Simulated assay, not measured.
Amino acid sequence: MSAHIPVAVIGGGLGGLTAARVLHVHGIEPAIFELEASAAARTQGGMLDIHEENGQKALHAAGLYDDFLKIVHEGGQAMRLLGPDGTVYVAEEDDGTGGRPEVDRGDLRELLLGSLPEGTIRWGRKVTGARALGEGRHEVTFADGSTITTDLLIGADGAWSRVRPLVSDAKPAYTGISFVETDLVDADTRHPRSAAVIGGGFFIALGNERGVLAHRETDGSLHVYTALKIDEGWLDTVEFTDPATAKAAVLAHFAGWDERLRGLVADADTITPRRIHALPVGHRWDRVPGVTLLGDAAHVMSPFAGEGANLAMLDGAELALAIAAHPGDTEAALAAYEQALFPRSEASAAESATSLDTMFGQQGLEQMVEFFTSGPAAQSTSR
Rank of each mutant, 00 (worst) to 15 (best):
D183F: 11
G134E: 09
L334D: 07
K126Q: 01
L23N: 04
R100L: 02
R137H: 07
I198N: 07
M1S: 08
W123P: 10
A61F: 12
L213I: 13
D186G: 11
R275A: 03
M47K: 01
L341D: 10
E338D: 11
A325P: 07
L293P: 03
R383E: 10
L341V: 09
L314R: 03
S355K: 00
M359N: 03
P303L: 00
L319H: 12
T241K: 12
A20P: 09
L35P: 01
T150S: 08
P243S: 14
R162Y: 09
G76I: 03
A249I: 05
G46H: 02
G76Q: 04
T237Q: 15
L113E: 09
A340F: 07
W234Y: 15
H51R: 03
V163H: 11
L294Q: 12
A252N: 14
V140A: 03
F372A: 00
F371D: 10
T120I: 12
D107I: 00
D286Q: 14
H299V: 11
G15S: 06
E338H: 06
V9F: 10
I271K: 00
A377S: 15
E92G: 06
G16Q: 04
A91N: 12
S374L: 06
D107T: 05
G119R: 08
P273I: 02
T141I: 09
G119N: 07
V72L: 02
R193K: 11
V7Q: 03
I121H: 05
S382Y: 10
M79Y: 08
G136Y: 04
F254P: 00
D242I: 07
E34Q: 11
R131Y: 13
I121K: 03
A3L: 13
H51Q: 13
E232H: 00
S115E: 09
H299F: 14
F304D: 00
G136W: 06
A278M: 06
D169F: 04
D94F: 02
G295F: 14
G15V: 12
R262C: 10
A19W: 04
V167D: 11
G63N: 09
R274D: 04
T241Y: 08
G316S: 11
T87G: 03
R344V: 15
A58H: 05
E307I: 01
S38D: 11
D188Q: 15
T245I: 12
T189W: 03
Q77P: 00
G207D: 07
A132T: 11
S115A: 15
E217C: 09
E217T: 12
L113G: 04
